[in-house]
């Protein structure tokens, strides 16, 4: 064994990064942690309350409901966008004139800012002046996202699918075009059906990009804020009050900094935990160590 070199100069290389990360992440995060364990009656007078805010937030039905909505929303989004994205990517041409056309069409929604997307759909869906709203009402469908919670949910989901499925499509497409032609030729010679080509060649080769797609879509959808905010501001009732909306209401609306800070930390840890779960499960799927036996 060679002894590990020991050299204090290494600190010089690490320090700039440490400094940057401290300013951009650790210090802001620590102020939030600071808020979350203290209370104030104004006048910049703070006193330590320990884990009180955490127990309060974790025990409140308001938090449970919002968390439930978030999980349901992210679940629905992943279940729709991932298969749909894969399907569209598979249907896209691999070469020829239509490739750039498809790619640009796919990239368009991604270029539109969140609040604009919200506004577009908010107007589009309005029963009095929106095209979609008028058409649906004209067809006899009782559609009103401002009063019916199901309509509000459907609108937000459609909005998100319209806005972000392209991202999944583009990621999957990049995975698909990277598969060498020989794989398809070998599969034909082996007599594989279309489904088997998908199951044993395309899906395994897309695994890496799918992992990225799932993580991005999960994190993004779990942090959804702008769309419901623009559409109904969390309504009707509390039906689209997700954690982020609740958090803003609590922190800025009610100025309850302590509970809001505690909730931020919990929110952050949940995203971290679930992302880790997704990452671990998906990167271990069918990719065990080279010499491990599989049954």
């Amino acid at each position: 064994m060679i002894d590990k070199p020991f050299n204090n100069k290494a600190w010089l290389f690490v320090l700039p990064v440490f400094f940057l990360v401290a300013i951009s992440a650790i210090i802001p995060l620590m102020t939030v942690v600071n808020y979350s364990i203290q209370d104030t009656f104004g006048n910049n007078q703070y006193f330590y309350v320990g884990t009180e805010w955490y127990t309060e937030v974790l025990g409140s039905s308001r938090f449970h409901d919002a968390l439930g909505r978030n999980l349901l929303f992210s679940g629905i989004i992943l279940l729709i966008e991932i298969p749909l994205g894969i399907f569209i990517a598979l249907s896209m041409p691999r070469k020829g004139f239509w490739v750039p056309v498809c790619l640009i069409l796919m990239a368009l929604p991604l270029l539109i800012p969140w609040n604009v997307v919200g506004t577009i759909w908010q107007v589009f869906g309005r029963a009095d002046i929106g095209l979609l709203g008028r058409v649906l009402t004209g067809l006899g469908v009782d559609y009103n996202y401002a009063t019916n919670w199901l309509d509000a949910w459907i609108t937000i989901i459609v909005m998100d699918v319209w806005h972000w499925t392209s991202l999944v499509v583009l990621l999957c497409y990049s995975g698909l075009v990277a598969i060498p032609e020989a794989y398809y030729q070998a599969a034909r010679i082996d007599g594989a059906s279309k489904w088997k080509v998908f199951r044993y060649i395309q899906l395994p080769k897309m695994q890496r990009v799918l992992l990225i797609a799932v993580l991005l879509r999960f994190m993004d959808s779990f942090m959804i804020y702008t769309e419901p905010f623009v559409l109904t501001g969390g309504g009707p009732g509390n039906s689209t009050t997700f954690l982020s909306i609740d958090l803003v209401n609590m922190a800025i609306g009610q100025f309850d900094l302590g509970p809001a800070a505690a909730m931020s930390i919990i929110y952050f840890l949940i995203i971290l935990l679930l992302s880790w779960v997704f990452y671990t499960v998906m990167s271990n799927f069918g990719a065990d160590a080279p010499n491990k036996e599989v049954g």
């Binding site: 060498p180 030729q185 070998a186 010679i189 007599g191 044993y200 069918g286």
Partner: peptide, 28 residues
């Protein structure tokens, strides 16, 4: 190709990543 009943070995090894060696050989 499948109707002609031929086998072809390509420049780069083509294997089905998620299958075992056995399953690869059994696939056709």
């Amino acid at each position: 190709p499948e109707q002609r009943n031929i086998a072809q070995v390509f420049q780069f090894p083509v294997i089905y990543d998620t299958m075992t060696v056995e399953q690869n050989l059994a696939f056709p």
